[in-house]
Design a protein around this nucleic acid. Structure first.
Lengths: 130, 130
DNA sequence: TATTTGTATTATTTATTATAATACAAATAT
DNA sequence: ATATTTGTATTATAATAAATAATACAAATA
């Protein structure tokens, strides 16, 4: 899995890394049980500090995307949204995004089509083979 | 228009304020040409510093949501997404949000229904009268 | 036993956020 | 004309966040 960081971005590196992993799992490029590179390896690959990677891994662990132990390192372990925590967060984010879309003149149909387009690019069963 | 700030939030105050205005315009609670409270008034209402409000207003101006002059203060002036800048940003955000939705076990149909729900709560032509 | 793992610690640097106290030019209202 | 209000700029300060650096340690592995 290839992760690209934008060092000029306002988004903190550890957030960019966290997001990349979430997207990777969502797309199926990272499958449950699969191991992530070690903290040190990932830090070396990305050219960032060990603690920056460790922070991202810690967040992914707390959010229930991966599990970590000293034997196997970090492994993909996605947990479902049991109590609707995500649904609530998603609704808040969608309110902001859809508000801006409306202001920008993007019709509802076009916004929904944008969602469809993103979903179309999600299903990549052979992504790892590419 | 009532704006609520969460002082305990990790989201900076000026970002919360910026978002609230964008949502207000999107919902139609703030109509084009309508004046926003002055920087000082808004700061007093919210109990924050003048410069914090000024920063939010400056961003809203740069993003093309309001216009500002010394005569009329800040007025709502939403600009359309002419060059697809918003569409690109929206697609990036949707990729992350939909990825997380997928991981959390939220089906596509449910996600689209969530969008529909948000849209249903958007159209409030008489919002200002309530 | 030596190595690798995640993790913790401490320190330092830089950037961001927020507040505070003024000040100024432009425009308005009295 | 004068006083007020407007957005804006300036400078300073404090608190927090982000990133790096250099180690260190216990647990697990090879």
């Amino acid at each position: 899995m290839i992760i690209k960081l934008d060092m000029a971005s306002e988004v903190p590196i550890y957030v960019q890394l966290r997001n990349a992993v979430v997207i990777g799992i969502g797309k199926g490029e990272l499958v449950p049980g699969e191991g992530l590179p070690t903290v040190r390896q990932m830090a070396e690959d990305l050219g960032v500090n060990t603690m920056t990677v460790n922070k991202a891994y810690g967040i992914l662990k707390n959010e229930g995307f991966i599990e970590i132990d000293r034997r196997h390192g970090a492994r993909v372990n996605p947990q479902k949204d049991k109590f609707g925590v995500f649904r609530e967060k998603a609704e808040d984010e969608l309110l902001l995004l859809i508000s801006e879309a409306t202001v920008r003149g993007v019709e509802k149909s076009e916004f929904m089509a944008l969602c469809e387009k993103v979903y179309a690019g999600m299903c990549m069963p052979d992504a790892k083979l590419v």
